[in-house]
Design a protein around this nucleic acid. Structure first.
Length: 222
DNA sequence: AAAACGGGGGC
DNA sequence: GCCCCAGTTTT
């Protein structure tokens, strides 16, 4: 896709996506720029629904919204607070461990550096990028499965892993779009451009999408 | 009842 | 590259 088309597509999307009121995966429900809350709620959100995540985060933060408070809770206590998010045992363990590391190695602060964040257990590129962009206002590209899938469907990139997608987008996506790109594609992904049975008939990007009219996406098609 | 949903880590 | 981690929602 050439740059002019890309700009056009993103402009259309920017105009439309807020109307859908899609639950925004990338943000916890109450807008915050507290890096610790963003970090923990993003860990909570992995492979689980937004509503479940929001409730769990609310319950958890009522008891512990700083690493200092978090480390006083046992894994079991954290598990009870965050249930029923998916993988709650793993996540409880990671949340406790992350909080301990933050206290021991970073003076209780969440690092603002991608590579430092990636060392934390349960923190991958999606989570790390989200923390530096939302928590610290740094430029980053956050690639989840929506961003990966739709970037490929539209022909913006041709990649097979989210990591490659992030690297490609880093090259071709104008910087002014970096932050909003994730929000827009997630909204589109949840409402219209779903993994299976996408609603192409009501998609604002149908004129620009090479996948239009594909009745059923192939099993392993993005 | 069954399929769909969505990141990270260990090997 | 393959498999594990666990729940809710949709079909």
């Amino acid at each position: 896709m050439d740059l002019d088309t890309l700009e056009k597509v993103l402009s259309i999307l920017q105009r439309e996506y807020k109307k859908w009121n899609a639950p925004v995966v990338t943000l916890i429900k109450e807008r915050t720029n507290d890096p610790y809350k963003i970090l923990i709620s993003t860990v909570l959100s992995l492979r689980t629904q937004d509503k479940t995540t929001h409730k769990a985060a609310e319950r958890l933060f009522k008891v512990a919204d700083t690493p200092q408070k978090m480390v006083r809770l046992s894994e079991k206590e954290i598990e009870k607070l965050i249930y029923p998010v998916g993988f709650y045992r793993t996540k409880a363990k990671n949340i406790k461990k992350i909080s301990e590391i933050l206290l021991k190695e970073y003076n209780g602060r969440v690092p603002d550096d991608l590579d430092e964040l990636l060392k934390l257990p349960g923190v991958g590129r999606k989570t790390a990028n989200l923390v530096i962009t939302l928590g610290y206002g740094k430029l980053g590209i956050c690639v989840d499965t929506h961003v990966h899938r739709i970037s490929n469907r539209l022909g913006i990139v041709k990649t097979k892993t989210p990591f490659e997608t992030e690297m490609e987008l880093r090259k071709i996506l104008p910087k002014k779009w970096w932050i909003e790109y994730n929000d827009m594609l997630v909204s589109l992904g949840q409402t219209i451009c779903r993994p299976i049975r996408p609603k192409c008939d009501i998609c604002p990007l149908r004129d620009y999408c090479p996948k239009i009219c594909v009745k059923n996406m192939e099993k392993n098609d993005v």
